[in-house]
Design a protein around this nucleic acid. Sequence first.
DNA 1: GATGAATGAGAGTTCATTCAT
DNA 2: AATGAATGAACTCTCATTCAT
Lengths: 194, 194, 194, 194
Amino acid sequence: MATSGGRVNRGPAAASDNRRAILRAARRVMAERGYRVPLSTIAREAGVGQGVLYRHFPTRLDLAFAVFEENVTELEVIAADPDPAAIGRLWRCLVDQAISSTAFVEMVVDARRTLPARDFADRLLGLVEATLNPARRAGVVPQEVVADDVLLALRMTLGVVVTAAAPEAVRPAVDRALALLDPPWARPGTGLSR
Amino acid sequence: MATSGGRVNRGPAAASDNRRAILRAARRVMAERGYRVPLSTIAREAGVGQGVLYRHFPTRLDLAFAVFEENVTELEVIAADPDPAAIGRLWRCLVDQAISSTAFVEMVVDARRTLPARDFADRLLGLVEATLNPARRAGVVPQEVVADDVLLALRMTLGVVVTAAAPEAVRPAVDRALALLDPPWARPGTGLSR
Amino acid sequence: MATSGGRVNRGPAAASDNRRAILRAARRVMAERGYRVPLSTIAREAGVGQGVLYRHFPTRLDLAFAVFEENVTELEVIAADPDPAAIGRLWRCLVDQAISSTAFVEMVVDARRTLPARDFADRLLGLVEATLNPARRAGVVPQEVVADDVLLALRMTLGVVVTAAAPEAVRPAVDRALALLDPPWARPGTGLSR
Amino acid sequence: MATSGGRVNRGPAAASDNRRAILRAARRVMAERGYRVPLSTIAREAGVGQGVLYRHFPTRLDLAFAVFEENVTELEVIAADPDPAAIGRLWRCLVDQAISSTAFVEMVVDARRTLPARDFADRLLGLVEATLNPARRAGVVPQEVVADDVLLALRMTLGVVVTAAAPEAVRPAVDRALALLDPPWARPGTGLSR
DNA sequence: GATGAATGAGAGTTCATTCAT
DNA sequence: AATGAATGAACTCTCATTCAT
């Protein structure tokens, strides 16, 4: 009755493949249809049963966090670079991630209502701080710039992203917004020039 | 038997009262529990049947637009003032509205997925333009400032609002963000000084 | 989309009919298939949608209590009779109800795990007391008999009912059990003789 | 890779250990959380995989029967004693088992719905008969007492057990019930006096 | 033989929408 | 014109059962 039709049971070996497939599907489907897509859709797209999705990610938030965890990993690689100009590359990466992440904002809004706060912001803050320090010491960014400013600028960017009228309008709007804001860590000499 | 229990059927006279009650309830409940509260909750809070809610506002979006229509009305009053300094007051009003409107962003995100675009942005743009023109002519704001910039700044502010960790963190974050952005239309001489 | 096929929407007028139909279906289906039948089965048998079942009875326990409420009503009619011999009729009724109520025991077991205790036992106790008092005064039952004894005897009977090997074995087993127990309130002169 | 994490595969030697561990876990968990606890919970508590549980006990009933098989074994030891007074000890043991076995009743109810009758009752009957015969011959219990009466009394006791409002109310209620019933095989001279 | 992940049917619950009264 | 119950599709979550390793 259990394995009547469809997929075969590939056994435990499938576990990590499945996890990856679920993350990939979640990233894609959430980007397309929003944070609140039915979990069953994600499971179907990932080619796994609903139980598997549930085993790997007990709640929608767990899944979303895991998706964005991958983003953080990408940032960590950049932040590990002691180059003072790394802050520029980190910023560019943050903006790029923001542009592809309407779902992220929906998640944050949802998390605020359902969770006793997670440490995402703190981790991000740590990454930015680590990257900002060498830049400040090298004089690439003014002394008074703090990590909170960077995150604030990122949040401003997210606002532009989620309120864009159409996908193709996102990038130009973000560019214009950042031109208005003109954050010091995004000026020449901060890794963006290369 | 028609009016078996509870409320009496007050007939046509109730129509506009009901509409107002629904809008008031929707504004409050959406602010508290998010854009996606069950419509039945709004109806209950407004003290009307679900059918009435449906008659006045066929979709959730219609309801949400009507709620924010009230915001626009408030703005129109300011924009009707030919005073060059009105732009500063308009901006302050926009920011205040943004601060009390996490639900607005959720609505916009939802609208983008479900609607063939509504004219909200255009109306807002018109208002800002009408207010910006005298200001520019009077030299209160630089000539190169365009209405789009104002809306962009507003969208940036919304990003800060919806990603705030807690309600009490909203206002300080917005203040800091606007200090960083330092929009010309919010500088002294633009109606904020009074 | 809502009323695509099947049942028509009969409007609010259907409410009390539906409630009755649900109770009837629940009584029958729970007796046949046990306390834990899928609620959807009960809804289907009653000819209503699942939402209606849910509206009338938010939890399975609410439904079950309502079913047994009807039993209590039957008992109340008997208990209202000041005749000292009423205790015999009350007892016979209790036993008859027990015989048709395997589901009752399952409910009680379930309720103990899920509920902060309901007042069923108390109401039953009150009924028995009210009926026992005149009987004791009239000397139809010995002075030392208390209502708790009657309920204890009922619980013993329920034990016999639920452990019967087959439905047709229930009545004989109960008769034999009561012959062994020989409760004073079931002896001649207590309303059973007529 | 087969035994990647957690427990090691101890091979065939583990089989009977596992069986015992499962039975112990099942007894405990079913007593705590009822007959219908998830099988996965029992497996986890026993420290075995779900497959092992399934191998040893294909159905929940098989497991439950095995649990109560241990009870029967305890009874068999008593029944093997030719002492006419053994019936008293057997009865006490039966009552003690009943008191600790709400789950037993749930099992019996379940069994009636799913199984073409098992021989549990028959084995119990045999045990009681074997113990009752010497007692009757020795005149410790009246001649007319039959084994069915003893089982009937046990079923009555089970009724009291499962309908108790709280665990601590079980023993007093059973005592009172048995005082009302006063079974001859539980009177002085039947093994209870020692 | 043991392990524990995968499977998927189905139970429970919610809620937008309809419509008799 | 208002009411609020009915509807049922959709979604989330659970868990008995299977089976690759």
